[in-house]
Design a protein around this nucleic acid. Structure first.
Lengths: 318, 318
DNA sequence: CTGAAAGCGCTAACAG
DNA sequence: CTGTTAGCGCTTTCAG
């Protein structure tokens, strides 16, 4: 692969001139410019961004760390992030941790080595590694430290508005299918839900340990309830399916509300009532904030809570 | 950020020794090693992978170009790719083209500049840019050139086995909801379907121009048919929903078959009969083949057709 | 306007 | 075993 020296030689000019020409920096006379372009074309030359990065100390790459690609929430987030990043001239390095801490550690290390300009992490489980890595970090869904910018949907409020709905409908037999304890965002949505209901002395049963695909038997259990709040849409969609085949009619027998407003929650049968905010918008904002940090225009505000609302669809009776 | 020279100075050793220590290459005495490690820790030193890459001519990054993240097929593909890449020590740079050729052009250019070791592209629309970029490429879903390794599911056969099912059930009023013409893989699945049915003088109506979300009105149209083959699962899932709310019962009024076997096709109501193969396995194989090329163990075989099968679920009556 | 030269952080001969 | 040295490909003063 040709380098800048080859181009310079072929064009019969100095290496610095080629550099100036490529980067449209400083003056290069028209005639010299043409000669250089010719040489570039003939040699099929592409500037080496790594060499450039090593000098400018800017790789134009953003690391994106997410726990999983299997829950569509994260691809949707990635859409917002990637699009905005592209607009700002950044490239995305994507890695998923599979919710494994060791994996996250490795990824952080690798990204630091690759000298990404900044990192966006969703549902982080590491802490000090982000604090000490020496590059700007924006955290989604979880507050890592007071110094690290953090955006998330208002989980607590999200839980609360579901509770409000429950109160309005005067449900008594209520179940919450709970997310993993170590996921802060999951815990918070439950907290908001429970706190609110407690105020009115309404108790909630909890179904634990069912986070992913395996929803077998849940239909049977649901027969005892009027309402179920599932910690995320991805799981709620599985529950919907299980109910259908388990002879539980939604929303007649039991109403169900999810959380996230992922794309498919609009396409389920029945369509899924859920707590949502614009996932993509959050991703975009994350990139903006990261970009500001990278340029040392560090925003003073470190906490960004995105408002949520209950999106009524057909898994509840309005 | 500290560099290797800082470490060497602090440890009171030579720069090469540090390099050897970091990369566990060549001999470094235990005592010297300890001193170096100490310096590394104190300085919070991370080796600069870019500088390393520029020398070794290997960035350990693989570019992944997909048309979209919105169709879950691609995230599922990315899962397989990312996991295998991680095992082999590669990092993924992900970009989606939004099906825009110009976007794809920009991405290729950017990835070349970043000196990725290789590119995996799904549903490519560029051709010569891949041929001329001078780095290994593996193409998914589309044959770019005879020289570029190409993996895809056997679309033609996929279409054929759907046709076989239609023949078996003796359907007469048949609709195909067709993908975009410029997507080869979409065209092929239809071709296999149509060719087979033609042999038995069975004709197929085609619904064109409905590729994405907007399925409004399709339920009404479907009332005239016994069977519909939808070009991919993502769209089929929308159709399912539209039928439900449009008063068309599946599979009683009309049977429906999709293509891809994405994750959610197992969770729809009814669950979706579809043509599938292991998406993740295809992604993994792509990485393996790319990796071999990167190491100049270029595989002789350039074409990899993945077998498909009809996965019977409840959107058809077995 | 243009080019020579120094240096970014790292690796790998090659002598000691 | 270890350090010196010469690059890798690029950018950027700084004289011409």
């Amino acid at each position: 692969m040709a380098n800048i020296r080859d181009v310079a030689k072929k064009a019969g000019v100095g290496i610095a001139t080629v550099s100036r020409y490529i980067n449209s920096k400083g003056y290069v006379s028209k005639s010299v410019g043409e000669k250089i372009q010719l040489a570039i074309d003939e040699l099929n030359y592409t500037p080496n961004g790594l060499a450039r990065a090593i000098f400018t100390k800017s790789s134009n790459m953003i690391g994106l760390i997410i726990p999983s690609l299997a829950n569509p929430f994260y691809p949707e987030l990635a859409i917002g992030i990637e699009n905005r990043a592209k607009e700002l001239g950044y490239r995305i390095i994507l890695s998923n941790t599979e919710f494994l801490k060791q994996s996250e550690l490795d990824i952080i290390d690798s990204m630091c080595r690759h000298r990404v300009d900044g990192i966006i992490v969703a549902n982080a489980s590491c802490v000090k590694e982000y604090i000490n890595c020496g590059i700007p970090v924006v955290s989604l869904e979880k507050q890592i430290s007071p110094d690290i910018i953090h955006l998330s949907s208002d989980y607590y409020k999200g839980g609360r508005i579901v509770a409000d709905y429950v109160l309005e409908k005067k449900f008594k037999r209520i179940l919450h299918i709970k997310g993993p304890d170590n996921i802060e965002s999951a815990a918070n949505r439950f907290l908001g839900f429970k706190d609110r209901l407690s105020k009115f002395n309404i108790s909630v049963d909890i179904h634990e340990g069912m986070y992913g695909e395996d929803v077998e038997g849940i239909a049977e259990k649901l027969k005892a309830y009027e309402f179920v709040f599932v910690w995320n849409d991805d799981l709620a969609i599985s529950v919907l399916n299980e109910c259908y085949y388990g002879g539980v009619n939604i929303p007649k027998d039991i109403e169900i509300i999810g959380y996230d407003d992922i794309f498919y929650s609009r396409k389920t049968i029945p369509t899924l009532t859920t707590v949502g905010q614009s996932i993509a918008a959050m991703g975009e904002k994350a990139v903006d904030l990261l970009s500001e940090q990278i340029q040392n225009k560090a925003p003073i505000e470190k906490e960004y809570l995105f408002d949520v609302k209950l999106i009524h669809r057909n898994s509840t009776n309005v």
